[in-house]
Each structure stands twice: as C-alpha cells, then as structure tokens.
Amino acid sequence: METSPTERGAVERLREMEFLGAEFLTWLWWRCEAGGGLFSIPSVGDVFIQFVKLVRLESGTQSNREMVQCLGRAAQEMKEAKIGLLLGKKVARARLVIKTETITMEVTISSKALDFHGLKIVSGFDDTLEEVTAIEGARGLVLLKLNVLKEARLIIHSIFDQFISRRLDAAVWAREKKGVREWILSLST
C-alpha cells in the first residue's frame, strides 16, 4: 500500500521519537533500583516494580545499532547490562515484576512500542470469586483476567505519564537526569 507524504512524515516522526521509550525504561530502572520501585498509581494504589531476569540495552540508530542482552536471576546481578549503561546504552526491553496490593504479575516491556509481552499472573489471582463464577463458562474467567491486563496497562502508562511530565520540564528533567547519571556512575564502583 502506498503511503502519502503526510503519512510518511508521521511515520518518520514516530521513528524519531522512539528514543522516548528507551529513556523511559532506563529512568524506570533507576527509579526501581535507586528509589525503591514504589509508585502511586491513580485508581490502582501503591505499586512496587522490580527489574528481573532480562534486560536488553541498545545504542545507536538503525544502521549502527549496538545491543547487549542479559539474562540473570535478578537485575542486581546483571553486571554487563550495567556496563552497557556506563557506555551510554539505554534499556530497549526489560522484564518487570509488578506487585499491587492484591496481585503479582510479570511482564516484558519493549521500549519501541511500550507493548506487553508474555504477561503472566504470578500470584493473587482468585478464580473462585463470586463475580467470576456468576458468569457462565470461560467468560467469567476472561473478564477477571481482562481486568488484570487493564490494571497492568494503567500502571505502565501512568508511570510513563509521570516520566514524560518530568522529561518535558527542563528544570525537573535536569534534576532527574543528574540522579540517573549518579546511579549509573555508581555502578562502576
């Protein structure tokens, strides 16, 4: 299908702005490690986030992209990923544990589209609830799970909104950036 110049312009703009996702995930890693990973999410409550198992870092653009991917038991052990941060790479993909007051889930988030990969409910999911069993067959269970997915989306998108508000305020961003830089530099010691 042919694309119009306007559409091509929009696609280019989307590509140019892909860096926002990588900056967000890198900032989020800093908030999780240096700031304890606690977030207050409207209509969800307090949420605890932790980086686990997988981190992929990238630098450069399409033609000269460099990538490092680390698989570990916990983010604290991902020394090579942290060396990548020191070299100026940013997080392109990360596996997160998200804990709300009732549910724990695990999901991989990609920086490019902020889409959700392999979301699993780890604990706290009660499929015997009355509102589930009241609906016949698989439909009740589907509704309950959809509400969990909705919560996961609300959490990630709400934290992204928090990030972008800071990113677009030069004075606030300068302070945040300083914090991220100090954290990254501390990883070398």
Partner: peptide, 25 residues
C-alpha cells in the same frame, strides 16, 4: 498507544517539537 502518541497526549505536539535524545552519562 506508543511513546510518541502518549507523550503528545501529556505535553501536546508543541512541547515535543525539538525534543532530541538525551544522554545519561
């Protein structure tokens, strides 16, 4: 709902104009 459209929703297109990648190091 990708970073660009979500950022546009928070800050509007004017604030995003001229925004370039930042280095943390």
């Amino acid at each position: 709902l990708i970073p660009y459209t979500m950022a546009e929703g928070v800050g509007g297109p004017d604030l995003l104009r001229g925004l370039t990648p930042d280095s943390f190091v």
